[in-house]
Nucleic acid binder design. Structure first.
Lengths: 212, 212, 212, 212
DNA sequence: CATGAATGAGTCTTCATTCAT
DNA sequence: CATGAATGAAGACTCATTCAT
């Protein structure tokens, strides 16, 4: 009967007890899950896959997390709040629009470099997540991030730094897509450092591709 | 059996026992599948979802296609060969690198505008597909498309049209990602025409974002 | 993701198509389920148990019913609406309170004799069901049945047929419990006919156990 | 270890390390289990439910009881031996059949009033328990209790106190069912005292429902 | 061509139980 | 005595696929 299911959705398997070892194990499992979700896709990853990688049985995962979805949630929430925090701080600290844009882009590339799985996961699942009950905060955060980009771009236009004849709604999307799509091919161990990638992009973005 | 057009979605022009209705039905089903695969994801779409939308039972789909994977294959193959054809033609017809780049980008935006589902499907599933047996041609096509982009970019650099100090391996990725990511937010019925989006992008790409 | 689950609760595996064979199979399965639910208890009965008894695989049950709970629902709903109908008809047809009580009791024993599984199921699971979302009609029907009993009993008291000094709220419960509890031991193939059981009960109920 | 009372629910009279606290804790846990088993059903109650209610972790229950079934066993065994004792004493002390029947019924209502959970548990699970290995004593006790009821009823018939034309095998079942079913609706804190309920039932049972 | 009943492998999840700390 | 991590078996349910009618 549904009772079981419903009761199951309560706050079992709550949070870290405060100590370290408990939380450590959680984080470890979360890391494994993030990697699998990111590379195989959420739906295509089974809890068995995660458990196997962790060296335990699939049922044992439920000692730490109440559901597969809860793991996804925890990963995303961490990534999104982190990102939002950084964006907010940048807007507060940098008044110059061009410098602010530099920083937003640098921060994004940084995210990709440090937590590539969460970024990829977000990239691949946004569309699905937006329609998912319980994941409303994803849309909310996305909107706030969008506003941050737009504020900086429009401020730059107002200040006469960025061209007047550019539709910033499109521009925001162009920049966002380029930056975040990087996660699909960027390899931290490859020949490019994150700063180098950021530099190259900013270079062309600001100066254009043509020889002047 | 009569001529198999394999293109277009001619809406039941023929009668119930008409000549080309078989192929029409296939295309119709393929269209439904593409739309669902694109919006929900391949794994998240069930054959029942497709059949429901088509007004038949899931088992009946197997009179038209041998498997769910076969549908995916057919959709992708159509899109990829089409794209490759167009890229090849462009390279043949346009010798001027800048004009060629213009055309490649325009063609891409065109694809997004006419067959958004196939594009989105490709975008969302490439990673998974590359490792899938039977889908080797996906990687093959992707590589050929990549080469086309790179040839044009490098030719432009050689011709002195594009800046020397830009890493074209990165540049190719930046452009490709921006262009194809458009499929995620571009709505044919929205306020932007595909040419307008292309123009805006090319404008900034060539001239840069800064006021000169 | 929760999507699947949610979509699954839609009206799949709807009702009988109108023909006979489809509905026959459903009824057959429902009968098997009712018997198992009644004897083993709902929670203790697995879908495998039901499927085994029917000679199919457990998954195949879901071609006919959307869930185990849906089977329970269908069984109960059938029983309860039936019972309520009969009770209503009796109240309409018999104005004499004593005759009406006779009929209510006879109808109850009849139910036990013809659909013992549904009755037993109801008896054993009411407590649990009342708190179950989606089973609100169970409480609703129970309340209506209760009212019917009480109306008849109070009418009898008013008419001077039933003793004044009896608390009819208690009496109703006594009668109901005795009658319905019969399902736990009554065997249709045993030495007692349903009418005989009813007669014996009414006899003592009306005349008392003592020698006058 | 100090004296094990095994009866009563003395509320933590002793200190944290007091003498009888071990047994107290057991009884406390047993009480919690009985309440949950009775209201939710045995199968539907998880050891975690019990542990949660007791403020410990489910694994810790196993320091007190060897299994979930052992708890059930202990609860039932206590209830059944108690009941049997009382029935035996009544038969010994009261020779007059009518007085004896009065007492059996009163004792039953008393049980319901003092240990409602155990009674309800027994009521709800007998059917299942009878087929359970290790619970043979349940059937044994039930049979002995049945014999006690029958002896009294038949003695009354022989003594000319109870009507000759009543089938006492049926009568026994009617009485038993009515009396024990009370547990399903009787609330100790309600408007009826146990004696009042017993009185009302005996009144109708002996004198009948009709106005003479 | 379509139906509808069925398969069989697999998915997430639950839960009584164990045991080292 | 209690914790918390883990087991392992089982449970409900899903879904691509098959096939006789």
């Amino acid at each position: 009967m549904a009772t079981r299911t419903r009761r199951g959705s309560a706050k079992r398997a709550a949070g870290p007890a405060g100590g370290t070892s408990g939380s450590d194990r959680r984080d470890e499992l979360l890391g494994i899950a993030a990697a699998l979700f990111a590379t195989r896709g959420y739906a295509e990853t089974t809890v068995r896959d995660i458990a196997d990688e962790a060296g335990i049985l699939s049922g044992s995962l439920y000692h730490h997390f109440s559901s597969k979805e809860a793991m996804l949630d925890e990963i995303l929430r961490g990534f999104l709040t982190d990102l939002l925090d950084r964006f907010n701080r940048i807007e507060r600290e940098f008044e110059d629009p061009r410098q602010a844009l530099d920083e937003l882009i640098a921060a994004s590339f940084q995210s990709i470099s440090t937590t590539p799985h969460a970024v990829a996961l977000y990239q691949n699942q946004v569309d699905t997540l937006l329609r998912q009950p319980g994941f409303e905060y994803v849309g909310e955060c996305s909107r706030q991030v969008e506003k941050a980009w737009l504020r900086v771009l429009l401020a730059g236009q107002k200040a006469g730094v960025f061209r007047e004849d550019v539709d910033m709604n499109l521009m925001y999307r162009f920049i966002r897509d380029t930056v975040w799509s990087t996660v699909r091919w960027y390899r931290p161990r490859g020949k490019y450092k994150p700063e180098a990638v950021a530099k190259q992009y900013l270079d062309v973005l600001y100066g254009g591709l043509l020889t002047s």
